[in-house]
Design a protein around this nucleic acid. Structure first.
Lengths: 344, 344
DNA sequence: GCGCTCTCTGGGAGCGCTCCCACGGGAAGA
DNA sequence: TCTTCCCGTGGGAGCGCTCCCAGAGAGCGC
């Protein structure tokens, strides 16, 4: 049995309009009437119908999180679970509902796209995990649906929140330099992603500040996944790096596996630094030194930004850079070096 | 510039009603009119307004996925990422939109619950990761919102899809028995979850078929997390099990870490079998023998069931048990034993 | 005391769609 | 030829809400 505003009004002895005013917290309702109506609402457990509401207000209170993880294993990375969780938490706090759009194939993307943007299902969209030159981003950007990206987009005029990939990678490089490593390699993320590109450039710049350069044979790229880190590390081993920076913790974990298989110790033979700060990096053996990015904060900022756009508080594109932090654990060998062990 | 049915009708030279018929694929539209209307729709990129649609039809085409992961670290488990992915994929295929409700705190749950069920935001709900005696489940069950659980509920009259936890755990126990292990321990999942309980009972029953019993000191429970597996394994080590079944792969990975720290080899000193079949179980060293559950299939069945309930095709509670599969890798020692190495 | 303003309240209109009924016209049967 | 039926189509009604305007009554100054 569905209640309507009219029903509540009848029960409280007022009109539909007054009930609406109470629900929407508008002024010009006398205190006693307001409490009376609130009483009835509480007793009946009434909730205004979302569809009717959004039909007239053309606002749904729903935001969309779009992740075109065409690469299936991309989702294997705990980063995305954390991100979804973070966005969900922020959305809950903002009083909005979260709809999740995971596009696994180009076809799904094609099919779902109109539904997301044209049907008015969502007030706005948070988009992440796009590639550079992604047609999806281009399409979304031209639409009039409020859009915020998590991760730097490769085109202008889009609001986004990004972690300081460049700065973080630079930090990692300098850290390894300072520990005295000379042959520092990179397990890169795809340069078709801005994160991958920024981490690459930051890393190179970090090395440069120490007077080092990234030797081409000491670089192999992966796709953020464990398996790709494993494969990439195998490529590097013959060229005998004494330290390696992996563009994601998950890749670093894969590298760890490759090194263990090759009989190399970490950090004894090869030092290792990751990026992200996933939970598994704490419990790996050795524990992974990493550049921690605050995923929750990033997600929260994205939701806030989006809501601002939805409300129309600001129309120009805003961007924000979230700082990262180097977490020194065992895999970089800092502790051993501090204890006076020589780098071999 | 928002188009309406009326606009499309005008452009195609027909009425609003006819356009509606075309969109909803109803009979009694002449072929030429139908194509003419479809043409206009394609050219304009028109999508019917979801709010107006659901206002009159009281169907939103949205299903909710509710995960009350009050224990934050529960989400650390890649199982949930896979589950969300699976549900999303199935929802996409069914043509519905997925809304995600992650309740991180009791408070959030309290706040969001009315919005989920009373506002008509969703047509139905998939609920998972509840505890036994969970008030949330009780509340949902009494509502008139179609509900399907993933995982066996502890109350009757609810449709659900569950993997064969009992059978899987039994399989694992028998496998270890058959390999000749005598002191077989258990790293249990919380018995406040039906999955934990079923895996416990299945395990005990499996041992029983081999004439073994679960010694109390060879059992320690965790909460599915890596850390809890680590702690639980530490408890077991002094009692010298020769094999251990962990109620989740993530816990098994924690156990692996504890064993390595203790200087015990796997499977040489202690054999290990997990449950779930997460990706990390393949790449761990040694690779984890595990009971693989088909998460995608489970999610897909849940979505199908829910949609059947939403359409009103069936009103009685349906349940389904998804079979699991033992995946033999290295950690159980099967290969070594086959090669003639003695169990110590 | 009268008119003015201001506060509070009620009801009409309409958001864009689906459902239902009515109606015109062609085919089929008598 | 006329009636009957059915197919294809159009338009009214109404889903439950918000917005806007109008009106009632209270309070105030002159």
């Amino acid at each position: 049995m569905k209640l309507t505003l009219e029903d509540i009004g009848r029960l409280a002895g007022v009109s539909r309009s007054t009930v609406s005013r109470v629900i929407n917290d508008q002024a010009s309702v006398s205190p006693d009437v307001r409490t009376r109506v609130q009483e009835v609402i509480r007793n009946t457990g009434f909730m205004p119908n979302a569809a009717a509401r959004s039909l007239v207000s053309s606002r749904t209170g729903v935001i969309g999180l779009v992740i075109p993880s065409r690469v299936h294993n991309l989702f294997e990375d705990p980063y995305f679970a954390r991100l979804i969780q973070g966005v969900s938490a922020a959305s809950n706090q903002a009083g909005t509902t979260l709809s999740l759009f995971l596009f696994q194939t180009e076809e799904e993307e094609e099919q779902l796209y109109p539904r997301v943007v044209a049907s008015g299902l969502v007030d706005g969209v948070i988009l992440t995990a796009t590639r550079m030159g992604d047609p999806l981003l281009a399409r979304m950007a031209t639409g009039d649906l409020p859009l915020v990206m998590i991760g730097r987009p490769d085109i202008d005029g889009i609001s986004y929140v990004d972690v300081d990939n460049h700065g973080g990678a630079k930090l990692a490089a300098i850290h390894l330099c300072n520990l005295g490593y000379q042959r520092i390699g990179l397990l890169g993320a795809p340069v078709s992603t801005t994160a991958g590109l920024d981490r690459l450039n930051g890393f190179i710049q970090g090395l440069a500040t120490c007077g080092l350069a990234l030797e081409p044979q000491l670089r192999a790229d992966g796709d953020f996944s464990e398996g790709s880190g494993y494969v990439a590390m195998k490529e590097l081993i013959p060229h005998e790096p004494d330290a390696v920076f992996a563009a994601s913790d998950t890749m670093a974990l894969g590298a760890l596996r490759a090194l263990r298989e090759a009989g190399a110790t970490v950090p004894g033979d090869v030092a290792l630094v990751g990026f992200d700060g996933i939970a598994a990096a704490e419990t790996s053996i050795p524990a992974l030194t990493t550049v921690r990015q605050p995923v929750d904060a990033t997600a929260a900022r994205a939701v806030q930004l989006l809501n601002r756009l939805v409300r129309g508080d600001s129309t120009e594109a805003i961007s924000e850079l979230i700082p990262v932090e180097l977490v020194v654990r065992e895999s970089c060998g800092a502790a051993r070096l501090a204890a006076g062990v020589e780098v071999t």
